[in-house]
Amino acid sequence: MNNKKDLNWNNIFVSMQEIPIVVLNYNGLHLLKLYLDSVLRTEYPNEVIVVDNGSKDGSLEYLKSKGVKVIPLDRNYGPSYARNVAIRTFKTKYMAFLDNDVEVPKDWLDPLVEVTKSDESIAAVQSVYTEWSWGEEPSEIPWFSTAAALTRRDVLERVGGFDEHYFFYWEDTELSWRLYRAGYRVMMVPKSRVIHEAHGTFKRLPSQFTSYLTMRNQLILLLSYYNKKQILSNFIPLYFVRLIQSFSPPNRKAKLKAILTLGKEMGYVMKKRSEVRKITVSNEDRFLNYLGKDPFGFMEIRSIIEGIKYRLLSKET
């Protein structure tokens, strides 16, 4: 976790029997008005806390009127930092995370708690908020989304929390990959279903900035976790595919910047690879095993090759 300027907020106490439900907010007053009441109706013993990333839209006044506990940050440090603040603030075993654009039924947390408590190796579980066609039993997944999730807070703290270098986007994927390397598991719990207005806060950020982060973070994620063979066989071809894609609108300059300035990220990448090696308990890459042979654009590369073969065969015939 990166060190930032010390911020002052009121001490917030949560009983060890309660689970803190941490909602992130950034200028999301309209979303809080739509969805916060459903969170406050959660039946499982809890305390709702909003970590606010320097909102200027009246969110703090609204939360005060609702009697909701708030950790107010002085500016937008990003979701990764905001979640880490919550992880450091509370000393409970478990911690739930919700985006501010999620509507939950009153019993959404119960199945998540049941599954997490059933196995100490389960570090995070996620609610279903998209189409799910694989039954009602819990299933392992490559990564969990913090849009609606329950985590072992102590485990997250032990492995280093969310990577603040990402600021936003792919940060929960990176944490999941790290958890697998450390010997933990990540699960989907279909009996917990919520409604998610996808990217409700994402839409509030400048599109150039989000395009840059989306491209940059995917590339540094792969460089941080691919082995040397995968860097040669997967990453280098993918890099050139992304380079070609960056010339297509929208936000060409932002995407091209993410591609061309990747060299400046090598110091971070080498440090990250060293940190991951220290917590790795197994060389079996369960994360990539779940994704199969076409992770993160490999299918695009294969499609290009197959397209070339098709054209060559067409000419021959």
Rank of each mutant, 00 (worst) to 15 (best):
R302K: 13
S127M: 02
D52H: 11
A123N: 06
L60Y: 10
Q218P: 00
A96G: 09
D37A: 15
I279W: 04
R193L: 11
L150E: 08
Y180I: 06
D110S: 14
R204K: 15
G67N: 03
L313A: 10
T280E: 14
I259Y: 03
K93L: 04
P20K: 08
L109G: 00
P105M: 06
E284F: 06
K309Q: 10
P138M: 07
I49E: 05
V189S: 01
E164L: 08
I87N: 08
Y268G: 12
A86G: 10
Y212W: 13
V155D: 00
W108G: 02
F144R: 01
A124G: 03
D110K: 15
E316A: 11
T261V: 04
K5L: 14
E157L: 10
L112Q: 01
V241C: 08
N8Y: 13
N234T: 03
I236P: 11
T201V: 15
I304A: 06
I49C: 03
F167S: 01
L109H: 03
M215P: 00
K278F: 01
L60F: 04
K309H: 10
Y169T: 11
N25Q: 10
L243H: 06
E61V: 14
Y226C: 05
E43M: 08
V70R: 00
E265Y: 09
D74Y: 00
P190Y: 03
I231D: 07
G28P: 04
V51H: 12
E131F: 01
R277S: 09
K69R: 12
A124R: 01
K228M: 09
V48W: 02
H196G: 02
L29K: 14
K271Y: 03
E316N: 00
Y268R: 14
E197K: 07
G263W: 13
R193A: 08
S55G: 11
L243V: 12
A258W: 02
